[in-house]
Nucleic acid binder design. Structure first.
Lengths: 150, 150
DNA sequence: ATGCGATTGTAGCCAAGGCTACATTCTGTG
DNA sequence: CACAGAATGTAGCCTTGGCTACAATCGCAT
């Protein structure tokens, strides 16, 4: 590794708040990621099976049921879900709206990945992580790109 | 909202460990994200200014200097960086290699976003979050796509 | 050479998201 | 109807990544 000369203290770096904002944003966006995953999954379960139970949610997300229940509690505090004890989980208006947006975005991301040649398996997998970081601007661009080459 | 009938308990959901693995992976990948950001930034600072100091790092990442120092400590434990007190931060062999990989990936992601029509500003911003979730398979596909339409 | 301002480092706190272990409630079956 | 087993919920702990407040060091200018 060798120690570098301690001479050139203070380089030419002018604060650069732009990049900070960029990183900060990426980080913040990632915050809501968990809520989005839960809401999307709950919506799916309600649509397909008729019921969203903590155990199913936990299993699908690969976490313990305790973790799932705790998170569901947070979603409730955030006004995204409603849940009476031992009675399953449901979405509020806001939750439904979020779910719809998330679902749309997910599809768009997967479609884009497929369109640029990503294998189906990887596309699904990567989309799960990517989707939470795609801005509206990018989303719009994805839509245009897909329509253009449809 | 309205409570649904408690009749159809136990729908037709067959455990589905596949999705769990998908989510789990997305989540785990995101774990190393912070390390990647730091290493990439340190590499940039070293390359351009000659020195990577905690305060600069903190400012660029938009966190407090205390947070940056704490994280740098973790990177040290992980064998990615070397740092003697009050002497700036440097990368180990492993750190350099990681930085190079991350940089390449970042460029590829930005280029792909631009290629599908995402505005430059958004591309840079979104790439920051997206890059940590792009698998090798997708990365390879991005490369092919870009070369094909170059 | 000294001393002040900036940088660096430390301590202690918080919330989120994860876990295990234990307690409670529910539900289908005998 | 009772009860065993599954599902649900609670408690307590851990780690990560943030923060502020305070302490220690450094380095430049006088």
């Amino acid at each position: 590794m060798a120690s570098p000369g301690p001479s050139t203290r203070r380089a030419n770096l002018p604060a650069e708040p732009t990049q900070a904002r960029r990183f900060g944003k990426a980080r913040t966006a990632q915050s809501g990621a968990l809520s989005e995953d839960y809401v999307e999954l709950i919506s799916d379960l309600l649509a397909s099976g008729g019921e969203a139970r903590p155990t199913d949610i936990a299993r699908r997300l690969g976490v313990s049921h305790a973790t799932a229940i705790k998170t569901i509690g947070r979603l409730k505090r955030e006004g995204l879900t409603v849940a009476k004890p031992y009675r399953g989980v449901f979405l509020t208006e806001a939750g439904e709206r979020l779910a719809e947006r998330v679902r749309t975005r997910h599809r768009l991301v997967v479609d884009l990945l497929l369109a640029v040649g990503v294998p189906a398996e990887a596309a699904e997998q990567d989309a799960e992580g990517i989707e939470h970081h795609v801005s509206d601007a990018s989303l719009a661009a994805f839509g245009r790109f897909l329509r253009r080459r449809a």
